[in-house]
């Protein structure tokens, strides 16, 4: 069992290395991607910065606390796209029948899909997100204990899993839509925008959507609420790892169910 997972991890690393080698052929493009995606995400920062020039807090959340929520979105998105950008390839893989290649190899197709691309634009997100996170944490007076640090790590990993699972699950819709221009995964992705700010500012409909339907709130808001001991939401933060497991199992189930419908079109 363990040997199997180690083998998968090693293979994953090899696939990613292959992607990197391929990518190095387009070095300028790579730099532009990293720079531009970092730049576009700085805009949100400007928004928050301008607002907090005028008001001390929003719904009881100070600037640095909101920045943690914001940075969580970017760090997790960055890591998730750096490592698992391949989900976005599913549309092409399925509609052009390229998934065939993955299915005739003795390796999990999910592993092969996830590692079919490397999201260099994630590097920009990771760098900026981490910088904000470090700044924010140093500005917030918090009592860090070892259990809390461990929990913070668990929350971060869970958040990455949740995000990546949503990506895999929403992209699996391609098995049903039979439509090369399907925009469903992008729609789901853009809902993540709500998770950049404290979810407590929204009405119940939006809160329900980002908590239950597409649990983006567990990527940023609930973990932050837990760490900062905010209102009732801190208890929700404890659920994050459970939600992560639920999402991962859900995504794999949806994928496998969809795979049975795969028609290997596009000859």
């Amino acid at each position: 069992m363990i040997a199997k997972w180690v083998k998968m991890l090693l293979l994953y690393v090899r696939f990613m290395k292959a992607n990197l080698i391929a990518l190095l052929e387009y070095r300028l493009d790579m730099m532009i991607m990293i720079f531009s995606s970092a730049l576009i995400h700085l805009l949100g920062l400007v928004f928050l910065w301008v607002i907090y020039q005028r008001v001390p807090d929003i719904n009881g959340w100070g600037l640095w606390e909101v920045l943690v929520v914001y940075a969580m979105v970017y760090v997790t998105e960055g890591i998730s796209s750096f490592l698992f950008e391949g989900s976005w390839m599913m549309n092409t893989l399925v509609n052009k029948g390229l998934l065939d290649n993955f299915l005739i190899r003795p390796v999990s197709p999910i592993l092969q899909i996830l590692s079919s691309r490397i999201g260099v634009n994630g590097i920009g997100n990771i760098l900026i997100g981490t910088a904000i996170l470090i700044q924010a944490v140093s500005h917030i007076s918090m009592h860090w204990t070892i259990p809390k640090i461990i929990m913070a790590v668990v929350l971060l990993v869970s958040a990455i899993i949740i995000r990546s699972s949503i990506k895999l699950a929403s992209n699996s819709s391609v098995f049903w839509t039979q439509n090369p221009g399907s925009s469903f995964p992008f729609m789901i992705h853009s809902i993540g925008e709500f998770a950049k700010y404290p979810v407590s500012i929204y009405n119940t409909v939006i809160q329900g959507i980002v908590t239950v339907v597409v649990p983006f709130a567990f990527v940023s808001f609930y973990p932050a609420a837990y760490l900062f001991d905010k209102e009732v939401f801190r208890y929700w933060g404890l659920l994050t790892p459970v939600v992560a497991i639920y999402c991962a199992i859900g995504a794999v189930t949806i994928f496998n169910y969809g795979l049975k419908r795969y028609e290997s079109a596009g000859n």
Binding site: L11, G97, D100
Partner: peptide
């Protein structure tokens, strides 16, 4: 009609990846 080689990798690298995949 289609290849199982990696488009941007040297053929030798592709084969070596397959070696890892098939153990």
């Amino acid at each position: 009609q289609r290849t199982q080689l990696w488009w941007d990798l040297p053929v030798r690298e592709s084969l070596s990846l397959l070696k890892a995949i098939y153990e």
